[in-house]
């Protein structure tokens, strides 16, 4: 793979002959590709880009009754209000830390689990474990939060009963700020690890079993096979997933956090998404403000994606652009 890429890079560094004439020829040669791409491109134009006038609401003081054209324009005021509000540092810190936890503690796990599943000999066992581990993804956060309440409460929750029996103490998982981030990350791990393996298993299914056989003949053990065959095979997928995930770096997911935050842990629990909800929903619809905050998150995400893509390309991967 990287050999072809190296060749391409070399080729593009040489002086290029003028290509306008050959450009039209290339378009004509690729006419089927354009046809195939047409429905998709139409979709993006009609359903993704056309409504984007809505982003301009961030520069207005939007009044639903007056509509987009009737609402007052206030320039960057929403943004300055947001950045200078006393909540901003807290929100940023909480969101950022949760994002980091997510990246470091959650992101590798589906890969690890996929590799483990891939190494299990018994096909039947593998299938059973796969099916079980992807079930949690289907429970909505409402139910997960509710079950966590029941399990972790200090008043008769089963987890605390066990801890009490072992140590004579009870842990206030649900209300102590110390435990909040762990709880959230733990919930994400529980819910999404199994589901996250699917994509890596799909990538692993593309690995030629003959490579494994050849390695075995050469005397490689399990770890060596993992290191020199399996991992390189899914390396591209891992990088792609990582870059794409960075695009949503500041998105923590509203429902989950909202359900687990209470007055006692709000200091560490309030993130951009819950803040947007409280400002923008129900009676207090401050749509402009929330659009501005959302825009901020998007810009950061986009910047991260570009940077990550650059870095990936420099180290030999193909990146995503």
């Amino acid at each position: 793979m990287s050999q072809t890429r190296a060749k391409e890079r070399l080729a593009s560094m040489l002086p290029q002959p003028p290509r306008i004439g050959s450009l039209w020829k290339r378009i004509a040669a690729n006419k089927w590709l354009y046809l195939l791409a047409l429905p998709g491109v139409l979709y993006f134009v009609l359903f993704r880009y056309t409504p984007m006038w809505g982003l301009l609401i961030a520069f207005q003081k939007y009044n639903a009754a007056l509509g987009f054209l009737g609402s007052e324009w206030i320039g960057l005021k929403n943004f300055t209000d947001f950045f200078s509000s006393p909540d901003f540092t807290n929100l940023f810190r909480n969101t950022f830390i949760l994002a980091i936890y997510n990246l470091f503690f959650f992101f590798p796990l589906p890969i690890v689990l996929a590799l483990m599943l891939n190494s299990v000999r018994s096909y039947r066992y593998k299938r059973i474990v796969q099916t079980v581990t992807y079930m949690p993804h289907f429970l909505s956060w409402v139910i997960i939060a509710s079950i966590c309440q029941v399990m972790f409460t200090t008043e008769g929750g089963i987890i605390n009963d066990i801890i009490f029996a072992l140590s004579g103490k009870k842990l206030d998982f649900l209300t102590n700020p110390r435990f909040f981030r762990g709880m959230i990350t733990g919930q994400v791990i529980w819910r999404e690890t199994g589901w996250g393996t699917i994509i890596f298993l799909a990538a692993l299914s593309g690995v030629d079993p003959q490579l494994y056989d050849a390695a075995h003949v050469d005397g490689a053990n399990g770890w060596q096979r993992l290191w020199s065959i399996t991992l390189p095979a899914i390396f591209g997928t891992i990088i792609t997933m990582l870059i794409l995930r960075l695009g949503h770096f500041l998105d923590t997911g509203f429902s989950q956090i909202f359900l687990m935050v209470n007055p006692l842990n709000r200091d560490v629990g309030e993130v951009f998404d819950t803040y947007i909800y409280r400002q923008g929903i129900k009676e207090y619809s401050k749509l402009s403000y929330t659009t501005a905050v959302g825009m901020f998150k998007s810009v950061v995400g986009l910047a991260l994606v570009f940077c990550a893509d650059r870095i990936a390309k420099k180290s030999g991967s193909s990146g995503i652009l």
Binding site: R48, W53, G54, L55, I57, A64, L287
Partner: peptide
């Protein structure tokens, strides 16, 4: 990363 928002 960018979406227009529910109302637009």
């Amino acid at each position: 990363v960018f979406s227009a928002g529910m109302i637009p």
